[in-house]
């Protein structure tokens, strides 16, 4: 009799144990599923975030500094990536702006060679943007300094296109309008050909072969005399 009850009791405990295990198993399965889902979501977020970051980087590499990577995302890694990209972007665009400014300044050196005489030596190729900048800078200086004579020396300009030729003619006209006399020196053979072939009229502007001749003419107009007191070597 006692053996039978014992057996029954054992069976009951075992059944209970099985039930408990089953419950535990179900719980574990649920957590696993949940974790798998979360994992999937994170990797999805990462993939989307990374592809967005790539698009931004690609635009930056093409010189478009107006794009921003998103820094305000849930994923910490992506947020950090965004911050780094944006910082790099800022640094690059600042450097580019600085270089452009420097080129602009170097490209238009207006020099006062005598009282009321300005010289602007142009070197290298001229595009219409630079020609426009030259015109603005020169006119500003004329009004500021009250210059009488302006010599535009284009010895260093090997060739011009039609737009630039027109721009030079316009600059000379504008110089006259603000109240100074313009002079053009150092026109190269190639440039002279272009100007005439394209019918660009540069009216009322004295042209001299080189800067020295231009300066002499400026002195003549101002009534300034340069006297050579000694022969070189004496």
């Amino acid at each position: 009799m006692s053996d039978k009850t014992n057996e029954k009791n054992k069976l009951e405990t075992l059944e209970k144990r099985v039930q408990e295990l089953e419950k535990e198993n179900a719980g574990l399965k649920a957590t696993l599923e949940q974790e798998a889902q979360e994992h999937e979501k994170v990797s999805m977020d990462l993939a989307i975030g990374l592809s967005e970051a790539f698009v931004v980087l690609q635009k930056i590499s093409q010189g478009d500094f107006s794009v921003r990577a998103s820094e305000d995302v849930e994923n910490e890694l992506l947020a950090r990536l965004g911050v780094v990209i944006n910082r790099t972007n800022d640094a690059l665009s600042a450097a580019k702006a600085q270089t452009q400014n420097m080129i602009k300044e170097l490209a238009t050196p207006v020099i006062r060679v005598w009282d009321e005489v300005l010289v602007l030596p142009l070197i290298g190729t001229l595009d219409s943007q630079r020609a426009q900048h030259v015109m603005e800078t020169l006119l500003e200086r004329i009004t500021k300094d009250g210059a009488r004579i302006v010599i535009l020396d284009i010895t260093g300009v090997p060739y011009v296109d039609s737009l630039v030729a027109a721009n030079i003619a316009q600059t000379m006209e504008a110089v006259k309008l603000v109240g100074a006399e313009g002079m053009l020196t150092g026109i190269r053979a190639q440039v002279a050909q272009t100007l005439v072939k394209m019918g660009v009229k540069i009216t009322g502007v004295e042209t001299k072969s080189n800067l020295a001749e231009g300066l002499k003419e400026a002195f003549r107009r101002l009534g300034v005399k340069a006297i050579q007191e000694k022969q070189p070597g004496d």
Partner: peptide, 27 residues
Amino acid sequence: LVGMKPEIAITLIQMGLSFEGVFSAVN
């Protein structure tokens, strides 16, 4: 014509106006 501002000079020239027969001065 006295004291024309640079920006005005540029605009007028780019409009293709001719100022023949008019003198200009800085001040």
